[in-house]
Every structure is written in structure tokens, then in C-alpha cells.
Amino acid sequence: MIAERWITLLTLAGFLAIPLWALAVDEPFTITLATRAAILALAAVGLNIALGIGGMVSLGHAAFFGLGGYAMGILAFHAQSFQPLDLGLFTIEGTKSMPVIWLTAIAVSALAAWLIGLLSLRTTGVYFIMITLAFGQMFFYFAISWGTYGGEDGLSIYVRNSFPGLNTLVPIQFFAICFVALCAALFFQWRLRASPFGLALNAARQSEARVATVGLSPKRLKLLAFVISGAITGLAGALFADLNRFVSPTMFSWQLSGELIILIIIGGVGRLAGPVIGAALFVALEHWLGGLTDFWHVWLGLILLLIVLFARGGIVGLLTGKAGPHV
């Protein structure tokens, strides 16, 4: 059986090798697929902090993904139409600069996660799953009926946003940005788990009562984790919108929230490499099965069923021989 640390390193190495190989043999579409996988992985890494460490099954993380996407969409829209965004009290200039967009996406989704978490954490279990779903749906329907930014049709951005010193229109350079963001998030999660906060959060998932007995507030731990989780998923949303140069209400859809959970479970809940393996497999299956048959969802469904029924702990669980990360 293989130690988890090696699985994480090997996964990341493989993730880097595939686009480099594609660059060598001149297959830009493979690089785009790898970029898509890296961004989905980043979104799932965010969710994994809430779900894997904090035990909060959120079926509404598409809300943060979509907010990140719309943060990019709205800022770039105002930049390309040269009209400042009028907020009543003051106006904001649009921007095409990625770092500014990312910070906005992170701030907006963190704020939303704080509000949603504050209200949702009053409930537990299935009710928590459902109330987060409800908040996600609110954003979905709001985006559909908000005509200023395209409503149901979404919003197209003509040129990809810029990053100082790089040409983001070159696929491999944009992949590099997304890959570095993913590695940074994984490094952050790794440090977080070993920190006093991470240990307390891990304990709060297992027994709220015991954590409360030693004088910590499980609610506050979980709320902070939920905010961090939402912020990371929001950043992924901004990158995803930049990859497609398009935002639409589907970024808020509950199917997307479900897919993020799927990525984590395929890979392994609470594992560092879990979402990364899950996203890579998902995108590969989507591409490969989608090329073989129009009805690839049937096969995806069957594979998922087999994983849930016979491979508890996901791929990382299979490889390490331990169903969970917590010994």
C-alpha cells in the first residue's frame, strides 16, 4: 500500500506532465482539458475543506463558483464596454487584470459564504444539505432573471483577462496560472490541517460536544472553514469563467454542486489528492466516453455506483488501503 504523501506528489507530477507532453506534440486541446480539470480540482479542493475536514455536506457550493464567475464577468464586461459600474454611492471602473479580479472573487464569495454559513449552520444533517441547496438555487434564479448581465443567456467576454508578465491567450501559460493556484490551495490545505485550527475543526467534525467541552465553539470553527472553503471555490469560478470567456447561470446550477461532491468522492473524501484525482478522472471520462457515445452519462453513472458500493474511500482509499484519512 502506498503512503498518501506519495500519491499526492505523483498526482501533481502527472497533472503537470500531461500538458507538457501535449505541448511537445502540439495538441492544444489536451492542454485546455487539463486546464479545465485543474480549475474543477481547485473548486473541489475548496469544497473538500468544508466537506472532508469540517464534515459539512454542502450541496450549494455552485453559489460561490458562480459568484467568482460573475465577479470576473461583471468586471470584464464593464472594462470592455468602458462604462464604470454604478453602485449608487460610488462607481467602480471595470478591469481586465486577473489579480484584481481574483481578489474581488475571493472577497465576494467569502462574504457570501459567511452569510450563508451563519444561517445554514443553525441546521445539521440532511437539513444542512438542503438549506445550502436552497441558497444555491436562489443565486441561480436570481442570475437567470437579472437582465443587466445577460440573464439566462449569460455574458460573453471577448478577450481573456491579462496577468502581468504572461500572455494568458497561450494555453500552456494559462494552464500554468491555474496549476500554480491549485498547488497553492493544496499547500494551504496541508498547512491548515496541521494547524491548531485544522485540528480543532477535524475534532469538531467527529464530536461537537467534546470540542465544546474543551472551551472551543464548534460553530465558529465550522463557519470559518466554510468561509475559507467558499473563497477558494470562488477563485476557481473566476478562473473557470476566464477559461471559457463566458459566464452563465449554469455556473450556479445544483448539478454543478453535485458534480463537485462527485469529484471529491471519486478521489477520496478529506484527502489532499482526492479532488485532484477526481477532477482529472472526471474530465478524462467525460472526454473519452463522450467521444465514444452520446449516452456517456449512463456509463459515468454506473462507474459512480460501483465506486460508492464497492470502493468506499475513493481512489486514494483504494491505493492506501484505508477508507478514511483519519487513522
Partner: peptide, 23 residues
């Protein structure tokens, strides 16, 4: 099983039913 596994397995069933019906 945990709620999480139930959500995933029945989500998989949706995929199978929907695409099967389309088939």
C-alpha cells in the same frame, strides 16, 4: 451508508435513468 454516499449513489441513478430514457 453515510448521507454523502446515498446522495452520490442516487445521483448516479439519475444519470443512468435520464440517459437510458434518452437512449
Amino acid at each position: 451508508a453515510a448521507h454523502l454516499d446515498q446522495v452520490l449513489a442516487t445521483f448516479a441513478l439519475i444519470l443512468i435513468f435520464s440517459e437510458g430514457t434518452r437512449w
